[in-house]
Amino acid sequence: MKVFWQNNMALLVVLLVVAAAGFGFQRHLDPYYYKILVDVGIAIILVVSLNLINGITGQFSLGHAGFMAVGAYASAALSVLAAGPWLNGLALGGAQKMVVEFVALGVIVIVGGVAAALAGFVVGMPALRLRGDYLAIATLGFGEIIRIVFQNTEQLGGARGISIPPPRSDFTGVYVCAVLCVAFIWRLVHSVKGKSFFAIREDEFAAATVGIDTTKYKVIAFVLGSFFAGVAGALFAHSATGYITPAQFDAVKSIELVVMVVLGGLGSISGSIIAAAALTLLPEILRGFAEYRLVVYSLLLVLVMLTRPQGLMGMKEIKLPWHRQPYQHKPVA
């Protein structure tokens, strides 16, 4: 038990800090900046989870927005049909309301994640037999099909979109999810078994000959990646705007996410976090240049690739100072 607490102390502290910060930001931060911060948090979840598939396991998925859509719509359906009316009926106020909404958000987010994970499993099982560019184009196709299906589902608002009742995903909710997502994926892929994900990316064939069930790990990566995409989707659907349309989850969104993964460095989780934050902030920073901002954005993309094709971080990681190792070897001299 002692080891468990030592291992998780830092994580708990971070989560508490996030909660406290969320509390403060809600009162004292300009809503515009608050919204950008929330967007950054959602982007981090999306990019880190996509990195698990594309960077760490080396499978090239171009359909992440599709799984985000599944999470968003599943959670939206839950909120519209059940959670929203139920919360409304309770007519709570004050601290009580906050706690209940936070818990409700947790349930909604998990439902979104599970729905996306199921979709990921259904898509991943057949698709992962394909390799490289074929997998890319097939996942792009799945993403688009998912979007078009939502577009044609009138019960969910069709192409017009659907508006979603509270609870709202605030800073605390989003960043608790982001921190857990990063911590879980990091811990998984740096465990002994979890290194299999990297092994598949390095040499799928050699991985099989040391006994790694490559198909299983590819599916795990895909399902887990989709789960977090669904979580992000649910958070996105419940963000302040409270309105989603299928067009928000199109191929362009998927491409944007791949771009962030590559810019951060394929396989580098810290790189993904930096890229997600930077590329979400950049268009906002460039807002002053209004119509030139997208031009600058795309120009930067090309320039970064030309000067640093391995991305910002390559495969390197920034390790936190309290990073713990299960075993420290004393070399026999």
Binding site: M1, K2, V3, F4, N7, N8, A183, F184, R187, L188, S191, V192, K193, G194, P326
Partner: peptide
Amino acid sequence: SMLLTAKHWRR
């Protein structure tokens, strides 16, 4: 591995 339990850590 996600919770870094003591058992996992030992293994």
